[in-house]
């Protein structure tokens, strides 16, 4: 169970997050949508301390952190309970696909190499890259790199996997492959928080959709609630721009 209370974050004079509360149950697939600058990515990055929130509380499983006074141990603990899939994949360029997946296990969690290798191979098979274990990132397509990124996150068996616009940097033909893998991950019951612009994916997979704008949560609910029955004007305006054909359909 993951809970965020009262998250505030400012970059200089720019207040990006103005008090955000989120509750995520185990197995939830939460999709966060909203215009750029709404703070969605910042919120995600605050979750694993790639950005340091100014204020708020974070609870992941048994760990509870006061974000104003977070210690190095707190940060490390949280990072070992979460995993992130990045927009620009961020695969370790000096390691092979399997090396990438093993890294967090071997170096971060001191898992013995043989065991890590087996876990990694299984997880790479799951994302459909069984023939690419020893390939370096520079020899993989964007879609393949992102799938390695997802495998890397899966191997760690975290409480939650954070997806930061995972398909935004991909060529259109490759987007489908990655979304397919993400669907599989969701179906296995893994808790996911996804920031994305892929609305049909959100409608398909999400158990909860959150619409953010201007640093606050405007509205949240099931996909049906948000996409077909939005209550707030701002939500309706956003959806009309992004998925014009969906507004007012059942």
């Amino acid at each position: 169970m993951i809970e965020l209370k009262g998250i505030h974050k400012a970059f200089g004079k720019n207040q990006v997050l103005k008090g955000v509360d989120i509750k995520v149950e185990k197995g939830d697939v939460v999709v966060i949508i909203g215009p750029s600058g709404s703070g969605k990515t910042t919120l995600l990055r605050c979750l694993n301390f790639l950005e340091k929130a100014d204020d708020g509380e974070l609870t992941i499983g048994e760990t509870h952190v006061d974000l104003k006074h977070s210690s190095k141990q707190d940060i490390l603990k949280v990072r070992r309970q979460t995993a992130m899939v990045f927009q620009s994949y961020n695969l370790f360029n000096n390691k092979t696909a399997i090396g990438n997946v093993m890294e967090g296990l071997v170096t971060g969690r001191k898992v013995p190499k043989k065991e890590a290798e087996e876990i990694s191979k299984k997880v790479l098979d799951k994302v459909g890259l069984s023939d690419k274990y020893d390939f370096y990132p520079c020899h993989l397509s964007g879609g393949q790199q992102q799938r390695v990124g997802i495998a890397r996150a899966l191997a760690l068996n975290p409480e939650v996997i954070l997806f930061d616009e995972p398909t935004s940097a991909l060529d259109p033909e490759l987007v489908g492959d990655v979304l397919g893998v993400m669907k599989k991950v969701a179906e296995e019951g893994i808790t996911m928080i996804v920031v994305t612009h892929e609305m049909s994916f959100a409608y398909d997979i999400a158990s909860k959709v959150i619409f953010m704008e201007g640093g606050v949560i405007v509205e949240q609910g099931t996909p049906k609630d948000i996409f077909t029955n939005a209550k707030e004007e701002r939500t309706k305006k956003f959806l009309k721009r992004i998925v014009p054909e969906w507004s007012y359909t059942i």
Partner: peptide, 11 residues
Amino acid sequence: GQYEAGYSVGL
């Protein structure tokens, strides 16, 4: 991004 990826897998 390489630094961030390293931190995000718990290094």
